[in-house]
């Protein structure tokens, strides 16, 4: 059962990331990977909300597997993030490459903290 929850979450999260990336990348013409950044921040915010809800007793472990490990885990990605950083660096865009790493890390951390603070305010 736990496996099915993770797989179902992953089967929703990955296409959601693909669609998010397409929608965001269609709205600007810089080579900066805003789409992946958006998916990673959204996944981190969701995970923060969910772990906060689990801690407050408002969400079950099963929900955490479906939405946290599955959905948020697959909505966010490290492989595309690192490949896009490599591409920027290879194209000579070293500053954007470094900024992509810095902004992704800081924004995802902020999103997790915000999510868990929100969950605390809502359910604790």
């Amino acid at each position: 059962m736990n496996w099915l929850l993770v797989i179902a979450g992953g089967m929703a999260g990955a296409p959601l990331r693909y669609l998010t990336d397409r929608a965001v990348q269609a709205r600007h013409d810089s080579p900066f990977p805003w789409g992946t950044l958006t998916a990673n921040v959204a996944g981190s915010l969701g995970l923060g909300l969910l772990t906060g809800a689990v801690l407050a007793g408002a969400a079950s472990q099963q929900l955490a597997l479906l939405l946290g490990t599955g959905l948020c885990g697959a909505l966010s990605t490290y492989s595309t993030f690192s490949y896009e950083t490599l591409r920027l660096a290879q194209q000579g865009a070293r500053l954007p490459a470094a900024l992509n790493v810095l902004v992704s890390v800081v924004a995802a951390l902020g999103a997790v903290l915000l999510g868990s603070a929100l969950a605390g305010a809502l359910w604790a």
Partner: peptide
């Protein structure tokens, strides 16, 4: 690329658990 890259590897790797680990 969509199956193995966006799908399998994108679903395998995760940024949220990375950020979540720091918070935890």
């Amino acid at each position: 690329r969509p199956f193995l890259g966006t799908g399998v590897l994108g679903g395998f790797t995760t940024f949220s658990a990375y950020a979540g680990a720091f918070e935890e």
